[in-house]
Nucleic acid binder design. Structure first.
Lengths: 229, 229
DNA sequence: ACAACAACGAGAGCAGCGCTCTCGATCGTT
DNA sequence: AACGATCGAGAGCGCTGCTCTCGTTGTTGT
């Protein structure tokens, strides 16, 4: 067993460079990534790329996975950096981190949360990383319940809704009351919609002051889940 | 001025058939519409399509415009059909109508609310039709205020948020209190996110009972804007 | 040290795409 | 009846993802 051979090292660097160039193309040209353009940028012929990625979709899948991880990192870091007992501060920090990452990596965000590519099926590997942002929000709720600064709402849930949410709670955060989880999921849904609206240009003419609008909207959701002011 | 000539009539029918075939392709193959495939389906050669639409994007634009109108029709019809004084019933009817239309026309919904196509810029003609669903929701709020069954929240808004919302209110529904509009926009954002999550497969493993979940989530938003139970 | 093998880049080629141009055929009008 | 507009077919351009072959180069076992 020797140190990694020259070939293995070069291969790893090649893969990294392909991903980097692909990300650059993604940022400038949008979501329709051209393997041939990537190859050209690297001074290679298009078929050579296939030594490293079996298909364009496989390259996209890797980029998607890493994007999920990057977004997850950004969100969790924001949460960990905030004062642990300032629930509302954490909430806003997490939401802003998601938005900031999305604005800074719009094409990658589009890959994650935009329309699914027709022929493309997301592999199961994406399920866990995709849960990190909502899990972070749920973590704030869990902490709030634990130290008594947050009370679960006493909404009555239809049986089917309660059952579905109970299973989710069991997987995400055992013991989380279903009515609170329901409101948490509404917040997560709203956050996704908010970022998508902004990124996809739906606020262009309507909302000049995006930062203030975003904070106020996420504040409404903080109210909805019952975070103390 | 004569009756429309045979040629004009045939041309109109051709355009209609192209749009119909294109919609069918959209439904089966997803958002990447192939002009050549449409032409093949019509027993034509691809270049013949260009006698009727100057480019693929122009065909897409027409489909998008008509999709906006169809969604707007569905939503407004649902609102008009419900009991005018049952605010909550109207709210749920409107939300369900939007969701039903999206589920029944998923590719077209994706065209409207999915990631924007890279090279494609939405023409201004889409702005007004795109406002019809949120306008319908706002209409429910306006009616509620008018007959006293709905009270505007007394949220304090940051100045920038209040100013932006005041302009929107002036355009959409003059006199609508900004704090209520803020919550209405949160509801609309949430509704878009909710439908997109479902359509883009993000609830696939998590929520088996989609109908009940949807109604409960939109109910939470009805609470948020203050609709009486 | 040399042979055998695996990994690699270049190139040609296939089928598909959007789009353009040309050329007859057809239709409506004068 | 003749002319001009309209239309469909066909060839062709440059682009795409992807496959296959061929010569070269790095790695490994004897």
């Amino acid at each position: 067993m020797s140190a990694p051979s020259i070939r293995a090292r070069v291969r790893a660097e090649m893969i990294d460079e392909i991903k980097a160039v692909a990300r650059r193309h993604l940022a400038t040209d949008g979501a329709n990534l051209s393997l041939r353009a990537v190859a050209r940028d690297m001074g290679m012929v298009s078929s050579a790329i296939y030594r490293y990625f079996p298909s364009r979709d496989d390259l996209l899948t890797v980029l998607i996975l890493e994007a999920y991880e990057a977004l997850g990192d950004a969100v969790e870091t924001a949460d960990a950096t905030a004062d642990r007992h300032d629930l509302r501060g954490r909430w806003h920090a997490v939401c802003r981190a998601a938005r900031d990452w999305a604005l800074a990596h719009s094409a990658e965000y589009t890959l994650l949360y935009g329309s699914p590519v027709p022929g493309y099926a997301a592999p199961d590997d994406t399920v866990l990383p995709a849960q990190r942002p909502p899990l972070t929000l749920v973590g704030i709720l869990r902490d709030g319940l634990a130290d008594g600064h947050l009370a679960a709402p006493d909404d009555e849930l239809p049986e089917q809704v309660r059952d579905d949410l109970a299973e989710i709670a069991a997987a995400l955060s055992p013991g989380l009351p279903e009515p609170l989880l329901a409101r948490g999921m509404a917040s997560w849904t709203h956050l996704f919609g908010l970022i998508s609206f902004e990124l996809f240009g739906r606020l262009d003419r309507a909302i000049p002051h995006r930062d203030a609008y975003f904070d106020h909207q996420t504040g409404l959701m903080a109210d909805l889940v019952g975070l103390p002011r």
